[in-house]
Amino acid sequence: MRKTDHLGGITAFVTTAQCGSFTAAAERLGLTKSAVAKSVGRLEARLGLQLFQRSTRRLSLTPDGERYLQSSQNAIEILEQAEAELMSHTAKPSGRLRVDLPAAFGRQRIMPHLLAVIRQYPELEMTITFSERFIDPIEEGIDLVVRIGELTDSSGLIARRLTTQKLVICAAPEYLAQYGELHEPEELSQHRCVVGVRRNQPKFWILRNARGEVSRYTPPATYEFADGDAMLAGVLAGCGLSQLPLWLVGKYLASGELKEVLTGHSGGEMPVSALWPKSRQLLPKIRFVVDTLIKAAEDGQLD
């Protein structure tokens, strides 16, 4: 018997088990009921096992059938993933893609690239949301997530590092004129600080000394804002000190609207990663967008 006949029998068996009858399986496969039943019968004869318990009223799996169904479904899933992987290199991205981004970084650094993808592929539909919390993409039905920070739990997810944010502690000159310059990290406790607020996430700044040793410091949470744009606005208004990414504050440091402090303890970094569920890793729409973001990162467009 040819191997293709074996595969046909497995397909007929799995479909019958899923549908609960030869009649329903025949309709799904576009075959006759007799053809499906004979194909399953030949599979049982080849295995020397009875996969279905047949009666006039119902069709049910035997214990051997239950075990074989699980193995067969796993094998079919592997074949489908292999086919999807091959197709993903040639297929155009299409369908609905749900993306969740951090607010400030997402709007300023990621959105331009997503908009370029949308213009290039009109068959791709996007739902883009913004949040700072570490959501579960699988639970919330999100296809692709971009997050800033160390990944504490990425089980069930594929993670790809895109870039690294360089962090600086800064303040408005007006604030420093009123409250004084800083020389050591210990002095931070005497200052007003603007920090990001995330549900169930610790608030800390990353410090690096002259020897390159990294430590975490928990600043006074005088003002808590939900995203980088709001934190930047607070610092520009003279509310206090904050540790912010260089891409966000660079132009304000250059113009003198902000001033870096504790330069001997700067150099903190925070990873930026793209995450997506393992079960969706081979979808062309996800692969294409991730590849686009990786290329942007390599070209320095996410820094």
Rank of each mutant, 00 (worst) to 15 (best):
M1R: 06
L7K: 08
A12R: 00
G30R: 04
L31N: 08
L31K: 11
T32F: 01
K33R: 14
A35R: 09
V36Y: 02
V40M: 04
R42N: 10
L43D: 01
Q50K: 09
P63L: 14
D64Q: 00
S72P: 06
N74D: 12
A75F: 11
I76V: 09
E80C: 00
Q81S: 13
Q81D: 13
E85M: 15
M87R: 11
S88I: 04
A91Y: 05
A91Q: 12
K92P: 01
G95I: 10
G95N: 07
G95H: 06
L101N: 05
A104E: 10
R107W: 13
Q108V: 13
P112R: 03
A116H: 11
V117I: 15
R119V: 14
E132H: 00
I138S: 14
G141P: 04
L144V: 12
V145I: 12
I148L: 15
E150L: 12
L151P: 04
G156T: 07
A159D: 14
R160E: 13
A172W: 08
E174M: 13
E174R: 15
L176D: 10
A177C: 11
A177M: 12
H183C: 08
P185W: 05
E187C: 11
V194C: 07
G196C: 03
R198E: 05
R208T: 01
R216T: 15
R216G: 08
P219I: 00
T222D: 03
L232R: 00
G238M: 02
L244C: 02
P245Y: 11
L248K: 08
L262F: 01
L262A: 04
G264D: 05
H265S: 03
M270P: 00
V272D: 05
S273R: 03
A274G: 14
P277S: 00
S279H: 06
R280P: 11
Q281N: 07
L282A: 13
P284I: 03
I286Q: 14
T292Y: 02
T292K: 02
Q301K: 08
L302Q: 09
